[in-house]
Design a protein around this nucleic acid. Structure first.
Lengths: 339, 339
DNA sequence: AACAAATATTTAAACGTTTAACCAAAAAGG
DNA sequence: CCTTTTTGGTTAAACGTTTAAATATTTGTT
């Protein structure tokens, strides 16, 4: 049905091995045969079949992306941190497509068993894992498959990973609030898991406070769902715990959206009555009212870094840094007031 | 390296053909051999290799998703209608994974040539195309590959597609504004392409007006980029064209975010000074302030419908409707005022 | 000119499946 | 009890590549 290497060989009057060597640039051939073959390839519009190639080479040029779907709202099926993942994928795609790799998409909340099946059945060349959980990591490490962890703080130095400096981000966010004169600073955060980004951001918050000689107070902290709703409902609870707060560090822009909405309903003005600093600098952060003062991270760069790293690992390149930490910076907009 | 069908056959004491027939459920075998083979499969943890299978069967259980990246901001690389696509993919994944298909992700703004390569090199079983352009459609039709168009109004009845009733959505949105007493209704819309959803929404807008005996006035319409910024800058321009508007129909929630922000800066209150109705009912629509009155579409269902349809086409099932139009409904929230 | 060395090309096996065609044994028909 | 049919299983070719090993051709050396 499709044109095969055999067709090319026949038409060019050479053996299929020659054609193969030429397209893989593996052995010397006389310039004339090379030209002849290349011409017929073009003429017949020949494209090597990846299935066959994968079989023969044990290399498929296929890499898997594991994306967590667990943040999906169970009732509505709506994903929360949505924009985040798409951008990440986009960043990944940008470099993989340049290197002739294709992307296979899978939900990473699947059991390791499912992931395992995928890997062996499809002969993946590598994996980019977003939001790994320890059981999955445990499995992957037994494998000899190259993989990159994105945004994971699973304690394992033997493993490649890329992320941002969440702790420093939390630190400068809180510090900015402190420098603006705030002392009673609340933390509205996503789930504080041991290996999660929110824990790191919290640690930054804590450090900033402690540097100022302030103590972290439990009643200034509320843990909520990383979602619009989580922010909407959470800020209420947080304020219940301590209504003398003058500033809030919300550890995700997504949360901040809900916060802003609730505060408007409560007629507390941001930043006049209450300052809000956020994290992520999602595309919409600038377009909220007030525009969010927030910690910027480039998700797309995170994606492309991860992909680049994976390509290097696959190609056995020398890697100088197993763990890449991308920088983070404070974006001052309108949601924080000096007092 | 991996365990193959040969290993299973040897251990079970049968030929590889028998094993193959059993796992494909293709021929009668005695219950005992079946059990014996199935047991060894489990014991050895055998999983058939999709590359080899794809080669032999000319069927890969791989389907491609073409996602448009053209809405990406050229400077920042940030995607606009982001949340939208992720949800769509999620909906697709939900059904394909159940049917043992895997998803290959590609940018659909690629030239048909790239898509072509992908199809023949990977032997895809089918394609879900989001935001097709006519050149691509032209190419795909020459192919005998099953494909489903999502959100496309390319005029072609021979082709499978799923979308929502954009025109009706535009109609009820506008009608609601009319029923609320508005007469000077602006349209702030994404690019009005012949085959695009925004054109359809516009047609709904027009019909509603005409039913009321009102004429569409060019100075009430402004075409802008489908993005936060597009809304932010667009609403200004629209109001410049006609500052006596009492209501605006913004054809995408994404646009509305920017609109809301700009209006707040201009100190025009929504809905007191100006009513706003929107389209999409993105997850955040409810959490803006004011909460958006908008036209709801279930993107995740759109995705799963497309996938289901594709599965049916691939399996040569009888299809009664080539074009699926999902319903749309008005969600009344706080951004429209009766006058 | 003869031989060795280097270079260019081909042959054939392998990758892990599926499946048409074939065969043996058991069941059914007369 | 012999022949036909059915059932259960095997053999071997095919899918489209790669690649080690073998072979043929050219180039270089003496």
């Amino acid at each position: 049905m499709c044109v095969t290497i055999r067709d090319v060989a026949r038409k060019a009057g050479v053996s299929i091995a020659t054609v193969s060597y030429i397209i893989n640039d593996k052995k010397q051939v006389t310039p004339e045969t090379k030209k002849k073959v290349l011409d017929t390839i073009k003429e017949l519009n020949y494209l090597p079949n990846y299935n066959a190639r994968g079989l023969a080479k044990q290399k498929t040029n296929l890499i898997g992306i594991l994306i967590p779907y667990w943040n999906t709202d169970q009732q509505t099926g709506i994903m929360f941190d949505n924009p985040f993942y798409s951008e990440l994928v986009r960043g990944i795609e940008r470099v993989t497509s340049k290197n002739n790799y294709h992307l296979l998409l899978v939900g990473s909340n699947q059991k390791p068993e499912i992931i395992h099946n995928l890997i062996v059945q499809r002969y993946l060349d590598g994996l980019i894992v977003i939001g790994a959980y320890s059981e999955l990591l445990f499995y992957l490490k037994k494998t000899d498959l190259p993989f990159i962890l994105v945004d994971s703080y699973l304690q394992d130095d033997t493993v490649y990973s890329v992320g941002i400096d969440d702790r420093y981000g939390g630190y400068i966010a809180t510090k900015y609030l402190l420098e603006s004169g705030h002392r009673r600073i609340g933390l509205l955060t996503g789930e504080l898991l041991d290996n999660g980004v929110y824990m790191e951001r919290f640690k930054g918050y804590r450090r900033a406070l402690e540097e100022k000689g302030l103590r972290v107070d439990d009643k200034n902290i509320y843990e909520t769902e990383t979602s619009f709703r989580g922010g909407y409902e959470g800020v209420d609870k947080l304020l219940d715990q301590n209504n003398s707060l003058t500033g809030i560090f919300s550890t995700a822009d997504i949360i901040s959206v809900g916060v802003l909405k609730k505060l408007k309903e409560m007629e507390v003005s941001v930043p006049d009555d209450l300052s809000l600093i956020s994290f992520d600098d999602n595309p919409f952060a600038e377009f909220l009212y007030p525009a969010l003062t927030t910690i910027n991270q480039s998700i797309i760069i995170k994606g492309s870094c991860a992909a680049k790293l994976l390509m290097d690992v696959i190609n056995n390149k020398e890697i100088d840094e197993k763990k890449i930490k991308l920088p983070v910076k404070l974006i001052k907009r309108d949601s924080v007031r000096r007092i």
